[in-house]
């Protein structure tokens, strides 16, 4: 089952059409939204626009219009949309993949487990205030010095969106190959 997640990632990366990629990124966000995840829209818009602007600064292809000294070219615009959508799409695809399916082996895996235990400990207890930032952190560290980590699970729920993500990705991937020549 989880192999489909990785297939979705690969199919998404290889979609060449900017508009289909953008559409798919949008669908991934909607799926996250539908799974009651907290989504902030404005950072995504800013991210998309900054990637588009980065690409427009490097004119390539047909000139659409002039914006002051800047020549807005079609290929640059499309490549900006493509890369921005890739960035955002992968972010939300990644959010949909359940963490429980990832097992990090060896010492690093153990360290991460402990790290999450201590992270939980830090979030409990007194709040950290801006004015007393250093002493607050120091107190938390002192309080932790004598504790030993116990078994703790990474708190992320299994989100079962694999099938819907895979099927939409596959459909748009096939559309991208343009089998009907439209």
């Amino acid at each position: 089952m989880s192999i489909l997640n990785y297939v979705s990632i690969i199919l998404f990366i290889f979609i060449e059409s900017s508009l289909l990629k953008f559409l798919l990124a949008l669908i991934y966000i909607l799926i996250c939204k539908y799974s009651k995840m907290r989504i902030k829209i404005i950072p995504n818009i800013i991210l998309l626009f900054s990637v588009i602007i980065i690409n427009l600064l490097y004119p390539f292809g047909r000139v659409l219009f002039y914006l002051g000294p800047l020549r807005i070219t079609l290929e640059s615009l499309l490549s900006g949309i493509q890369k921005g959508s890739l960035l955002i799409g992968l972010m939300y695809l990644s959010k949909n993949i359940s963490i429980s399916s990832i097992k990090i082996p060896g010492e690093v895996g153990l360290l991460i487990k402990d790290t999450f235990y201590y992270f939980n400990q830090f979030t409990q207890g007194d709040k950290v205030k801006f004015k007393t930032f250093i002493t607050d952190i120091d107190n938390k560290l002192l309080a932790l010095s004598n504790t030993k980590p116990v078994e703790s699970e990474i708190i992320r729920k299994n989100r079962n969106n694999t099938l819907i993500i895979f099927s939409t990705t596959l459909i748009l991937f096939i559309l991208d190959l343009n089998p009907f020549n439209f």
């Binding site: 490097y58 004119p59 390539f60 292809g61 047909r62 000139v63 020549r71 070219t73």
Partner: peptide
């Protein structure tokens, strides 16, 4: 520097380094 190509009222721009 870049190449500016004009044809049929359309303008295209391509950098020479690519």
């Amino acid at each position: 520097s870049y190449a500016k190509i004009e044809i049929d009222g359309n303008t295209f721009i391509y950098p020479l380094e690519k």
